[in-house]
Every structure is written in structure tokens, then in C-alpha cells.
């Protein structure tokens, strides 16, 4: 058995005796940990290895090591830069918009539905429900609703005078708007529920005390609600950020990256490199870059916002 390290308590070195060691407890966690290592950690290591080879999908001979070739391709080649910057840009636009929609509307809805009666509970459940329906099914519903000639949205727009049918999914800018509509509809209920539960956790004392001091509703929202919701906002920001960066399903179903790559997000690009260009090696470097961006942004948001987040005592 391993010897325990001496610990320093009150300036004195104390040797804490090891607690009883149970092999059986270790074996309880072992299968899960081994499988996690196999399906998440090992692929990342393998991804790094692949990024230094010339691996093609259709290759019959063993791949060879080519050094930093793929990495220089990623950051210097014209074709790479064009598609990479495009996909980064598209993903960033999507992520920023999606976070704004989900968190902004989610917070507004949480205020509106913060009413503890039966009808409101029912309506909350209705708003929350889309989240559980597969994005691929929702995508087809929206494809149909946004259909240029027969879609219900264009027909309703006729009522208000927009008679020339809008080509939602074929337009450079509207294609992204369409995807945002779909994913916003899908995700806003979740943010509402999380915000709502946080709102219920805020003690009414704050509001009573502040209204005695003459604070208006808007002031209360600005100086009480928002600061006390900041841990929730941080949680939602990080989870929505990660899920937005990973967006693929909605794009694949709605636009397949088009028109003219205007919705070709990062994951779509990585997938495309691997399975349509057959360039596993290039796909691997791009995937690693994507992973690095995910990690860096998540870690830095946590670090920066941790200082500005208010936790209720």
C-alpha cells in the first residue's frame, strides 16, 4: 500500500493514517472509468497522433507520419483559411445569437411565467416540451413551415402584405435566421425553467426592503434580480455556449451547410473534411483546433466571471 504524505496541521507535521482501503469500492468505479477513458480520452490522444499523419479515409496502405504538414496546412493554406475562417465566423455568429436569444428570452419568459397557478404550470410545460423532441424531427417541421411556396409562415406573412414569398433557406442571411428560429424555439424553454427556479430561490425580503426604500420595479430588476441571478446566468452561458458551438443537427437537416457555406458551422466543416473530402488528417487538425477553442473559452469565462458572480450567502 502507498504511504500517505505527511500533512501540516497548525504548523505541525501530522501523519494521518490511511483510511481503510477497499478494493471492492475501486472495482465499482473501474468499469465506468475504463470505458470513459476508452471512448473519450483515448480518441483525443489518437486525434493528436492522426494530425501528424497523412491519413485518408479510402487509404489501403498504412498512413505515414508527415510531421507538422497538416498543421501548417490548417493555418497557412489558402483553401483551409477560406473555409476555416468562414466556419469560425458562422459558428461565432450562431453562438452569439443563440446565447442572446436563449438567455434573453428565457429570462423574460421566466418573469412572465413566474406565477404559481395550474394554468401557468401547464403553459410552462408546453413551452418546455420542444426540448425533448429530436432536433431532426423539429428540423423537418420547420423546413415545412418555412417552405417558400406552401409554408405556413410565408402564407401568414401574406396577410400582413408580404406577397412575394421569402426564400428562407435559400437566402444567404435568412438561412441562419431560420436555423436560429428552430434552435431558439427548441432551447428557450430550458433557459426559462432554470431561470424560473432561480427566481423562486430569491428571498422576497430583498424586494420588500427595497420597495420600502422606494425602489421601482426596474431598479429592483437591475440591482437585485440580475446580480442574484448571475450564478444561473453563468451556468446557462457556459452550457449554451458549448451546445451552440457543437451545433450540427439543425444545420444538417435544414440547410446542409448552404447556401454557399453560409451555415457551414465548425462541426459541419470537420465532418465534411472527414467523410466527403476523405481527409481524415485535415479533419483531425481542425477538430483539435475546435476542441482547443471550446476549452479556452470555457476556462476563461469561468475564471473571469467567477470574480463578478454574486453568490447568495
Amino acid at each position: 500500500m502507498k504511504k500517505t504524505k505527511p500533512m501540516v496541521i497548525n504548523g505541525r507535521q501530522v501523519n494521518i493514517r490511511p483510511e481503510k482501503y477497499f478494493w471492492s469500492d475501486f472495482f465499482l468505479v473501474l468499469p465506468a472509468v475504463l470505458l470513459l477513458l476508452l471512448v473519450t480520452y483515448y480518441p483525443v490522444a489518437e486525434l493528436i497522433r492522426i494530425s501528424f499523419t497523412d491519413w485518408r479515409l479510402t487509404m489501403t496502405t498504412a498512413p505515414e507520419y508527415v510531421g507538422w504538414k497538416n498543421w501548417t496546412w490548417l493555418f497557412t493554406a489558402k483553401t483551409s483559411l477560406r473555409y476555416l475562417t468562414n466556419s469560425l465566423q458562422v459558428t461565432l455568429i450562431y453562438t452569439v445569437c443563440n446565447i442572446t436569444i436563449d438567455l434573453g428570452i428565457g429570462l423574460l419568459l421566466a418573469h412572465l411565467f413566474n406565477h404559481l397557478t395550474k394554468p401557468f404550470a401547464f403553459m410552462r410545460a408546453m413551452i418546455f416540451m420542444p426540448r425533448y423532441i429530436a432536433m431532426s424531427s423539429c428540423g423537418i417541421i420547420f423546413l415545412w413551415m418555412l417552405n417558400t411556396d406552401y409554408g405556413v409562415i410565408n402564407k401568414m406573412l401574406e396577410w400582413v402584405g408580404v406577397t412575394n414569398h421569402i426564400n428562407w433557406l435559400g437566402d444567404d442571411n435568412l438561412a441562419m435566421v431560420s436555423i436560429l428560429m428552430l434552435t431558439g424555439w427548441h432551447g428557450v424553454g430550458y433557459c426559462m425553467m432554470i431561470y424560473l427556479s432561480a427566481l423562486l430561490g430569491i428571498s422576497s425580503d430583498y424586494y420588500e426592503a427595497s420597495s420600502l426604500d422606494g425602489a421601482t420595479g426596474l431598479q429592483q430588476f437591475r440591482y437585485i434580480t440580475l446580480p442574484l441571478l448571475s450564478p444561473t446566468t453563468l451556468f446557462l452561458f457556459i452550457t449554451t455556449f458549448i451546445s451552440s458551438m457543437k451545433v450540427y443537427q439543425s444545420v444538417d437537416v435544414m440547410t446542409s451547410g448552404g447556401p454557399r457555406n453560409k451555415t457551414a458551422v465548425m462541426v459541419y466543416y470537420i465532418y465534411d473534411l472527414a467523410f466527403n473530402d476523405n481527409r481524415i488528417d485535415r479533419s483531425a487538425v481542425t477538430a483539435l483546433l475546435f476542441f482547443a477553442i471550446l476549452l479556452i473559452v470555457t476556462a476563461s469565462t469561468m475564471r473571469v466571471t467567477n470574480k463578478n458572480v454574486h453568490y447568495e450567502a
Binding site: V44, I242, K246, I280, S283, A287
Partner: peptide, 19 residues
């Protein structure tokens, strides 16, 4: 190790897994 795995999505690991 378990918590760290939460940070690694399938969208990153799918190529080696597929192979």
C-alpha cells in the same frame, strides 16, 4: 478524470472512434 470527460464532446472524438 470523470468530470474532465464532460468537456470532451463526441463532435471532437468522432473521427478516431469511427476508425
Amino acid at each position: 478524470v470523470v468530470l474532465g470527460a464532460m468537456m470532451i464532446p463526441i463532435q471532437v472524438t468522432f473521427i478516431p472512434l469511427y476508425i
